[in-house]
Design a protein around this nucleic acid. Sequence first.
DNA 1: ACCTGAACACCGTTCAAGT
DNA 2: ACCTGAACACCGTTCAAGT
Lengths: 239, 239
Amino acid sequence: MNTQTRRQREYEQREKLFLDAARNIIRTDGISALTMDKIAEHTEYAKGTVYKHFTCKEDILCGLCLDSLGLMYDMFSHALTWQGNSREKIICIGVGYQLYTQRFPEEFDLLIAARTNNIREKASPERLERMDQVDTLVLNAIRAVIQLAIQSGDLTLPEHTQVDDLCLGLWAMSFGLLVLEGARDLINGLELSATNTLLLHQMSCLLDGYHWHPLSTEHDYLLTYQNTFRHLEALIPKD
Amino acid sequence: MNTQTRRQREYEQREKLFLDAARNIIRTDGISALTMDKIAEHTEYAKGTVYKHFTCKEDILCGLCLDSLGLMYDMFSHALTWQGNSREKIICIGVGYQLYTQRFPEEFDLLIAARTNNIREKASPERLERMDQVDTLVLNAIRAVIQLAIQSGDLTLPEHTQVDDLCLGLWAMSFGLLVLEGARDLINGLELSATNTLLLHQMSCLLDGYHWHPLSTEHDYLLTYQNTFRHLEALIPKD
DNA sequence: ACCTGAACACCGTTCAAGT
DNA sequence: ACCTGAACACCGTTCAAGT
């Protein structure tokens, strides 16, 4: 263990320190309360030092997203170990997504913002590259379940449809529903059946449309939903 | 026509002037280039006057969203007149959504941001109220198609499912896909079949899952997609 | 070689003065 | 009654000076 690696280790620890401080600020006082001054103050470093790690404020926001994505990926990986058929594994991932976004709404707001050009054009290419890598990890997790379904005969993809099409469809449906569910004003104007299981029902219809077996008429996925919910809930950090 | 209404008319015209200036700025130089100074300069009013209309910058962003939503609603209304079965009308709305978001990506970024708490908590309650109203108009357009499908026997909702569940599901799927499609880095890492018809195929699977007739096996919706695309394309403003 | 924080530039917001 | 724009406060970013 030479000096170079110690320096590097300390550098990475400090970066984590900055990001933790930033996360605490937005969790406590919201995204708009995040300033470079506060990050410096909370970590007892000078503002200039923060810029040794991040090219700009948007770079920090993307750094936070990177961590959030990483935590979500950990949860998804755990979801994959859920004992059940291939559709139940998909549900388990969806439930993990829902739990995470509802537990940390500010961080989800950041993930939403990080999909717009306005943020991405300012962040450093290195950070964006790393975000793509975690995106790929998450996608691979979903891909794996789809491959499993195909191999086990539960699913036969329609002609002219790739694994990644379904992948993106599932992600889009979940992402869209969770974004719109977060908009309370919108939801209040709607007459919905039990809001909590909306994601389950829409995903079920989508997967039924793909003839992914067992169909929702052949299996009680509500039970799966409730079980996976309880299972993953225990994994969400309390603060 | 008394003085009161003339004043009011002039006031509304000036508000439109400010919003048009703001829209031009973001279309030309992006969202981050929008400043109160530039709006004042472009309209030849003082900054203080802008604040007679908008409580803050976020209020302007929401004002822009309001206009965008309005234009999209106009397009959706037009889509409803498309001659075809109920599923084709849904597709026509989806195509309108896609055309609009791809034609005006900066405005779509604003619509995305306007779904986060960070923006909404700063905008004026009046503006948010008006946004809800246009949201409701858009939802009613989709509701109408679903009702039509039910009445004509094309669709029978599953038990414990409301019209609005399907409504939100369709919206979420479209919104999610268009947001993720806008993230070029993400899309580049995916092996997708012809990207342009992704929305069509995912919506088709979802509606097949709902047993909304005619099913995609019974009807050539790709043709519908292409026809509605050409039809609506002509309606999108060129600048 | 690394950290600091004063200084700068920019921009959202206000309000006393002007018409 | 309405508009103006100088003044203010705040905050992201830089860089010369310090250790």
